[in-house]
Amino acid sequence: MNFTFESNESKFLLRIADTSLILAQRLAEMCSKGPFLEEDIALSNTSLDLFGRAEELYKIICRIENDKFEPDELVYKRNERQFYNLKLVEQPNEDFAWVIVRQFLHDVYAKEVFTELLKSENSEVVGLSQKVLKEIKYSHLHAKDWIERLGLGTEESNSRTQSAVNHILKYIEEIFNFDDIDKTYLSNTAEIESKWNAEINAVFAAYNITRIEVPPLSMRDYRDGFHSEYMGPLLSVMQYLPRAYPDAKW
């Protein structure tokens, strides 16, 4: 299939949609693997929110592109290099600390992005952002509460959280290398970055987590469809059925 996007708006929304989808898939991996039942349910909830968010965004994108493809085709038929999600959300569930750190770093960013999108000229995007911000409020609070508990809990929980932070932080830099497309749809990208930094720094400092210095990285940008090696296996699993049985309807 030809997955060329004519509109800059759909290219922009695709980045958020793909980020939501891949994070949802990662969280779904946690189903039946949570530290206790209530937490299992909470992670499934967040995953469901993110799948729903991705689906709504794909629908908007498909309409902008005159329905030349369908949301499920965007999910199941594109190859690795045709996905435009943050590398942050591809990172694996090494342990519960990774899950929580990844979620927190994502949610703080997503909160700022969707707050900006309340000013969008596209009324569908505005409506969706209003709904999404309510979901993010819970997910963000949930992640932040856990950062607090893990950071201040035991020596082990602190060190596991610190280790997750140290590994994951290198995927942050690219988030703020905003390009012209981002800047068209996000009116104040500098503020997104400064607010993100302010909150992360404050929360880490309050809960005994160190934000290590990350040297400038030679890492190609997610906006051009570059990924970590974790992406391919994730897609192979996710896309297996529609690719193995291309004539089937599900």
Binding site: E29, C31, L48, F51, P71, D72, V75, V237, Y240, L241
Partner: peptide, 17 residues
């Protein structure tokens, strides 16, 4: 993780939940 459509995936996840 292998559910074949966005709908199927959300329904199944909600069911397991």
């Amino acid at each position: 993780l292998r559910a074949p459509s966005l709908r199927a995936k959300q329904v199944l996840l909600a069911k397991i939940q």
